[in-house]
Amino acid sequence: MASHIGKLPVTIPDGVDVTIKGQSFSVKGPKGSDSYEIPEGITAKVEDQSIVLTPVDDERTTRAMHGLARSLVASMVQGVHSGFSKTLDIVGTGYRAQKKGKGIEFSLGYSHTITVDPPEGIEFELPNANQVIVKGNDKQAVGQAAANIRKLRAPEPYKGKGIKYSDEHIVRKAGKAGK
């Protein structure tokens, strides 16, 4: 029995080139290129503008890796075609960000400013002083860069001050007066 996720084909959009040589998988598109080593026991092939991954045997670990491999391949295809982004909001009086070279300089209520340089393959965008957009073609790297920025001043539960994801909801607590 194959993985439910793993047996779904991955559609290849226009402008994306896929190369499969044995267990080596590489993809190239308008946003860059990426490669992945498909685990042993899983084969990949291109059929009708889509990528199909099939397990060689029906071992439990192969089924688990089958779904994971399919998800990673799908993320790579989407990343080189349209890319990934995470939006962070900076909430708080005096909290702001400004562009400094390729990096960002944050004023977050500390006695000093904090400068964050983007990792390789990641870029930062500042639509305004209270919003940061992290962009890139690697889903994991975009998420990690956004998490590292959020960690600089995580939102606190009383006033909601700090750096939060734009779609994140901060559960508020009542202060001393709230009974």
Rank of each mutant, 00 (worst) to 15 (best):
K161P: 02
Y158R: 03
E120S: 14
F106G: 00
Y95R: 04
T113K: 15
T113G: 08
F124E: 01
D117Q: 07
S82T: 10
G162E: 06
N137P: 09
Q131K: 07
V56E: 15
V80R: 01
D57N: 15
A146S: 06
R150E: 13
V77Q: 07
T113W: 05
G136R: 03
A64W: 13
K159H: 02
G109R: 09
E168L: 02
D138C: 07
A145S: 11
G92P: 09
T93E: 15
S107K: 07
K135E: 05
E156W: 08
G67K: 10
E105A: 02
T62G: 05
F106A: 00
A97S: 13
N148L: 10
V142L: 10
G83C: 04
G94W: 06
A147Y: 00
R150T: 02
F106N: 01
E125K: 15
A145G: 04
T93M: 13
V142H: 08
E123S: 15
M65Q: 11
G79K: 05
G136K: 00
E105C: 04
H81R: 07
A129N: 13
S111I: 07
T115Y: 04
Q78M: 08
M76K: 09
R60I: 13
L72Q: 13
R153N: 13
G136P: 02
E123M: 14
H81Y: 11
N148C: 10
I104C: 06
P119D: 07
K159T: 13
L152R: 09
G121W: 00
R96L: 07
R96Y: 12
I149T: 00
L68A: 12
R63F: 15
F124C: 04
A97E: 08
P157L: 09
N137W: 05
H66E: 03
R150I: 00
D167P: 00
S71M: 14
L88E: 06
Q144I: 14
K161W: 15
A69G: 04
Y165C: 02
Y110N: 12
I122M: 03
S107Q: 11
L72S: 11
I104A: 03
T62S: 11
A74D: 15
T113R: 13
T93K: 14
V132E: 00
D57C: 03
H112S: 10
E125V: 14
P118I: 08
T115P: 02
K100M: 10
T115L: 06
V116N: 05
V77E: 03
Y158V: 07
A154P: 08
L72A: 12
R96A: 09
E156K: 01
Y158N: 01
S82V: 06
R150H: 04
E168M: 03
Q78P: 03
Y110C: 07
E120N: 10
E59N: 14
H112N: 12
K100Y: 04
V77D: 04
I122A: 10
A129Y: 14
L88D: 03
H112L: 09
G79A: 09
E59P: 02
A147V: 06
I90P: 08
